[in-house]
């Protein structure tokens, strides 16, 4: 084969890659946290709020997000919303799109966990004169999160892979960095190969991080 691979040429741009990784980590860190918060609210709204309209609205939101591609959601937020007067920077748009997207998926995941909490627990909570919100907060949420923590972790990894798409609105994350480097040195295959490897490492780290976070927040015993 005539083509000579040259991976060294990519490592001249280590700083660009490092900046890309920093952006990707920021996106998944901030987007992930807020997305899960939206998911908890959504799950509460669907199972516990007892408000029909809220249940219905969240249900429609979940279906809408789950049946359209992330790319189009991102383009709609970044290119479409300005005509309504909502102007966003690339990073803001990317974060909103990620929260919007993850919120819907995690609503469904957390709801599944909530439905798996035995009825007796709810009744026990109610018999202690807890309000419905208190039951949700103190009795239901933690066991529910324990049950679905692995699923939530997988969804976060999927969302991180989805964040590669944010390069298309010029958010300078890892894929954007790869595009930038290959436009400079024309070593497209090598650059994307390395970027793919970096995503693999990031995914492993994210899984580890979620395990640690889960042990601390969800599985661990906090002192009263």
């Amino acid at each position: 084969m005539a083509y000579q691979f040259d991976f060294v040429d990519v490592f001249k741009y280590t700083d660009v890659l490092a900046k890309g990784i920093a952006f990707t980590v920021t996106l998944i860190g901030v987007g992930g946290t807020l997305g899960i918060a939206v998911g908890i609210f959504g799950a509460w709204a669907r199972g516990y709020s007892r408000m029909k309209w809220l249940d219905w609205t969240v249900g429609a939101y979940v279906e809408l997000v789950r049946n359209t591609p992330f790319l189009i959601q991102l383009f709609f937020i970044f290119f479409g919303l300005p005509s309504l007067g909502v102007k966003l920077t690339e990073l803001q748009a990317a974060l909103i799109a990620m929260v919007f997207n993850l919120g819907a998926y995690s609503t469904e995941i957390i709801r599944a966990g909530i439905e798996a909490v035995p009825r007796g627990q709810l009744e026990a909570g109610a018999s202690l004169a807890m309000s419905r919100l208190q039951v949700f907060k103190h009795v239901v949420l933690r066991p529910a999160l324990q049950k679905i923590w692995p699923a939530l972790t997988s969804q976060l990894v999927i969302v991180m892979f989805g964040s590669a798409v944010c390069s298309q609105i010029a958010v300078e994350e890892l894929t954007f960095a790869a595009n930038f480097i290959q436009s400079r040195n024309f070593r497209a295959f090598e650059v994307y190969f390395i970027a793919t490897g970096l995503y693999l490492v990031l995914a492993i780290l994210l899984r580890q991080g979620m395990r640690g976070l889960g042990n601390w927040l969800v599985f661990g015993r906090r002192s009263p």
Partner: peptide
Amino acid sequence: GTPLLMQLFLAFFG
């Protein structure tokens, strides 16, 4: 374990 977008790029350029 890798983004679909990266797989597309690698297929396209590879």
